[in-house]
Design a protein around this nucleic acid. Sequence first.
DNA 1: GTCTAAAGTAACACAAGTGTCACTTTAGGT
DNA 2: ACCTAAAGTGACACTTGTGTTACTTTAGAC
Lengths: 191, 191
Amino acid sequence: MARDRKFSTEDLYHATKQILLEQGYDGFNFGLLAEKLNISRGAIYKYFDNREELIVHFMRHEMKIFLTDLKDVEQFPSFDEKLTFLLELIFKNPAVPRLIEIGQRLPIHENLKMKEDFFKLEDLRLKMYQQLQKFIDLGRQEKKLNPSVPDTLILGFIFQSIMIPNHFEIPQSKWVQSIKEILCHGILNHH
Amino acid sequence: MARDRKFSTEDLYHATKQILLEQGYDGFNFGLLAEKLNISRGAIYKYFDNREELIVHFMRHEMKIFLTDLKDVEQFPSFDEKLTFLLELIFKNPAVPRLIEIGQRLPIHENLKMKEDFFKLEDLRLKMYQQLQKFIDLGRQEKKLNPSVPDTLILGFIFQSIMIPNHFEIPQSKWVQSIKEILCHGILNHH
DNA sequence: GTCTAAAGTAACACAAGTGTCACTTTAGGT
DNA sequence: ACCTAAAGTGACACTTGTGTTACTTTAGAC
């Protein structure tokens, strides 16, 4: 009953991700997005009312995928195995912490529809932190974690570590291994 | 021979710092700056040709102050004392790592004058890293640092730790102490 | 074939920021 | 008193991005 679409929502999200990671939140605009997809800017407005709405929906999409992967952490029984899995997952998805940070920049909207969309995204972020909290709780229970350090700081360190710039281009495997080493035992020599 | 100035360069830098930290690089503009200082936008162009030039000069100003403070690290003989001083210095200047990050976003300019300004800023950043490298070298020499971990990652962890968001508003002293604990000994229980 | 409705386009008015320039203001030297 | 030159102003032309709208295109139902 209508002509074929020139681009799927999936295409849209893919290009959105590229632009957000390359140019940051402020660098993202519909002109760039349309250009990347070889469509006119106006076409995007057929599917999203504005830039914020598109970004919120995109963020939810990304978050859902990450949460599905994150759920597999439950399959590992011990804290150590969970930690290894978690670090690997984060380093397989280096965009996620950056996108979460970018997501924090979304302005709070008056509009009811936008408020709902925003709330759903908040809800996913909450679900993620609950999943991570279970992991921390197990670590506490197994007496594996330093009791003098707050939960949020442990999670903060894990998530922030992905954002340390690797200016000297140290190979990924060595880099991840070293991050794990510091996270677990610190920078001091413990031998 | 001329009328009095309504604002000093120091005033300009102070307002610039506020805006950059509140609104980020993209949120900064001459309109906002002029408003904050109760002057007209045009007046700023009497002292700086454009936004980038102002920001580069501001960054150099900030960096010089930080480098002066950082130089005091030399007064402490041992690695442990230097580390304590360094962490305290960073947590007394939480804006510095954020400003350095913002500084990275400055576009590379064609203009010769801007290129020079930019180079001078790069030079200051280099001086900072050289100062920090001496600190790391001492740590290596004293066999205090984990030898399997690269220098840049150690510095990265130290600088990145200031940017972990303290969402649950854990008191500053407890927060800093915990960061020091993780940096030195990791998240795992080592007792 | 032609009608329909979704898909896509391009031009519009608008908003916000940029850098410039002719102008006004004013402190100090004469 | 008045001239000068730096300090400051406000209007202008320009750029870039926004969201809307009237329009064209096209696949499929009839």
